[in-house]
Design a protein around this nucleic acid. Structure first.
Lengths: 349, 349
DNA sequence: CTGAAAGCGCTTACAG
DNA sequence: CTGAAAGCGCTTACAG
């Protein structure tokens, strides 16, 4: 048990009121007892109970939670810097606090993290990221009556059909984005395109792969299942996967990636293979992280306004928590194709 | 005033106990009243009071706070992804929560953010970043008796002399790092070095600039004050400053930057000026963010273990909060020089 | 199935 | 200068 103000009072033969006043820095306390109280507090290892204080002073406040999906122990996707900045700025705008945790996605620890927050009432609402086609979190939070908003929206669910449930979301039209991207790359003369994606349960994987296929179709190019690889959205996996792709008998002349991080790894592998990116082989990503402008060569990518997306997610969630009416609770954005040298255009943007 | 369980009970002519039990999902409640309670709760916009719940259930928990210094509305320094991941992983290891806010450094809003957290008992301890030579936060938190740990340590203060105060910190030896960096660049034949730093009040600015000067000295190169520029640690400022540097009569043949983000902007400006980085001009950064490997050309940098630094900071802070003994409360790390093509070596690392 | 009551740890008028 | 008491909003044995 943590030591309380009462323990100090007992030990010193004082009232809790006196102890509280001394510790809170009131001046109407005898210098002598003040000192004894501080000494005892230090010695006994007293820490004020935050909940009690907030309850008493009526200063609870709303807390919004976000669990960051971290894949590797030292991942450094700048996507998240921008995303968290957006979350932080918008939560502040609503006089709310932002609680953050990290968890390897898909692992038991992730489930525990969500459960803990919900069951211990740590947060008033949650921001969900990296939605899966069937996402247990959606089901779970609806059941527990915890408000949330999502980036991407899961598919219609056969059983629960949570897709119809009333929760706000922001979606980026990856499908159309990829169709545009494939068209652009085909226009520049590349024919044998590969795609490095992520786990098939991810919503963005489903959408982007579908866009890739449809894009090939519209460009009159054949689809070769051999050219579809599964990565894990890190540059490391982009690197390793490309090594494999380049060693098969009929290697690709273009590699499209589910995100920029993956593409960075691809660039490196392509370079090591002695190929010239943009000439011998095209490479493209998705996200539009700022560093993509400075890669070697600059990376063609589908840009999404990560900062604004984060703000929207919080705005939608806050509206729900504070029961304010929403003009719309389902926002769909189009990514912007940023054409740079990695797909053959020599002028970098 | 927020609506409470008591309001619902009053309106329905029930006891608070009954309402509480119904809302918590207990089954020993008449289906009929259960429904009435839920309906009323929804209608009246009831949200459980977190503080009260946590106090009652004895599930308060320790909270560690970090205020992220964001310079631009859409900054995307991947340094912070890594830093926050470290904070998140280590706070979880101590069964604590991580509260995050964003604030433009130096602005009034930043002060307000710290004050709010402290005065409303939002956090049990704080992680401080981007320390200034004389940092008001150190003074303030000592006075308020809020534990904290710092990345970098302010100078000895004339007045308060808070430098002697007993708080833990992690320091990176930027001074020595820069001496090494200058030596390396001089060895590769570059003579007229410029330095793009940050605001003079930043501790890292003082250290890195001093290292730069001492390095020049040791290499037998003259120091030209004209070659020292003030940026703001963003790639945008690196870009703009380089434009200026390259337009003076006797431009530099090397540009050393306070961080990688700045260097990314430099690379771009150098490229636009038609110069070949690594041949006509050397460019180097500091941080070792992962993307520096993929820049054009790959960037020479002083690597610091950002993820581990973040974990250490939390570990030190947690020890203080939980009053556990520390083997040491002042950790000093050496950065590692990563030599890549941007300073003239053609083999990228 | 529901009510009355105690209590989580703290703060703060109110007496004296 | 210090004590006694009320109360913040909630949960949970304990009766009935």
């Amino acid at each position: 048990m943590a030591v309380t103000i009462k323990d100090i009072a007992n030990r010193l033969g004082l009232s809790v009121g006196a102890v509280s006043r001394a510790l809170s820095g009131y001046t109407d306390i005898a210098e002598d007892t003040r000192e004894r109280i501080f000494e005892a507090a230090r010695e006994m290892g007293y820490t004020p109970n935050r909940a009690a204080r907030q309850l008493r002073k009526q200063t609870v406040g709303t807390t919004i939670g976000y669990i960051m999906p971290v894949d590797s122990p030292r991942f450094a996707d700048s996507y998240f810097s921008e995303f968290i900045e957006g979350l932080g700025d918008e939560t502040a705008a609503h006089q709310s606090d932002l609680l953050i945790a990290t968890a390897r996605p898909g692992q038991e620890a992730e489930k525990m993290a969500y459960r803990q927050w919900v069951e211990n009432s740590k947060v008033d609402g949650l921001i969900l990221d990296r939605l899966q086609v069937h996402d247990w979190r959606v089901q779970y939070l609806i059941e527990k009556r915890v408000p949330f908003s999502t980036l991407e929206r899961p598919e219609k669910d056969r059983d629960g059909d949570t897709s119809q449930a009333d929760y706000p979301s922001v979606e980026v039209d990856s499908f159309n984005g990829f169709i545009q991207l494939v068209a652009h790359i085909a226009r520049n003369g590349f024919r044998r395109m590969a795609y490095i994606g992520g786990p098939p349960r991810l919503k963005i994987q489903v959408d982007r792969l579908a866009g890739f296929q449809t894009g090939l179709n519209q460009a009159g190019l054949p689809f070769d299942p051999q050219m579809v690889m599964e990565g894990d959205l890190t540059s490391t996996s982009g690197y390793a996967t490309t090594k494999r792709l380049l060693s098969i008998p009929d290697p690709p002349d273009a590699i499209l990636c589910i995100n920029d991080e993956t593409a960075f790894g691809v660039l490196r592998a392509v370079d090591e293979a002695g190929l010239r990116t943009g000439q011998d082989i095209a490479v493209a990503g998705f996200d539009g992280v700022r560093d993509a402008r400075y890669s070697n060569p600059p990376l063609t990518t589908l840009d999404q306004p990560v900062y604004d997306i984060a703000r929207q997610l919080v705005r939608l969630l806050a509206a729900q928590i504070f029961r304010q009416p929403l003009p719309t609770s389902r926002i769909i954005l189009q990514p912007t194709l940023l054409i740079r040298a990695s797909t053959g255009n020599l002028i970098s943007v």
